[in-house]
Structure formats: structure tokens, C-alpha cells
Amino acid sequence: MAKRNKLEIMKDVLELVSQNHNSIKPTPLLRKSNISSSRFKQYYQEILKKALIREILDRKNNKTISLTEKGFRFLEKYQTIVHFIDEFEL
């Protein structure tokens, strides 16, 4: 299997959240994303910073992750982004 690039990993992580009824805890997300924890941390921080996901704390202070509107838009536009990058060799 070819090595995934940054955009692909971001898309996969966001898709995992979306497929999990838009609510998933960090640990299962890390497990399912199939990347090392250090790389996961790096990508997680990046998508959080870009406001593609948000963290929600419940009453017991447990953290869950859900997609923002921008996150859903990213998934919608992912193929367009990839095609654009490919077409202009960016």
C-alpha cells in the first residue's frame, strides 16, 4: 500500500469521525487511524487548529471529537482539492 500523504491522512481521520456518528473519543480514533501516536498528535493538532474538528467535554470531563461545518466541507471538497493539486502539479 502506498504511503499516505498529509491530506489523505487528514481526510481519513475526518472520515473516521464522520462514520462514527460524528462523535468519537481520541483513543479509538488514534487506533483506527492507523498511524503512529506521534504522527497522530501532529495531524490531530493541525486539524484542530484549522477548526476542522472540535473537542467536546462531557460532564465526566471525557473528551469526544466531532467534525465542524468546515470539517464536513473538507470531506465534501476533498476530491476537488486532490484533483486541483494533481492538475496543476502543486
Binding site: 491530506l7 493541525e46 484549522k50 476542522l52 466541507r73 471538497k77 482539492i81 486541483f84 493539486i85 496543476f88
Partner: peptide, 13 residues
Amino acid sequence: TRELYKLSGHRGI
């Protein structure tokens, strides 16, 4: 191309 860049943050774009 603003939205593509805002969503992806891709440096090439």
C-alpha cells in the same frame, strides 16, 4: 481557489 486553500492549507495552492 480561496476555499480550497482555507480547507486544505496546502502550500502549493
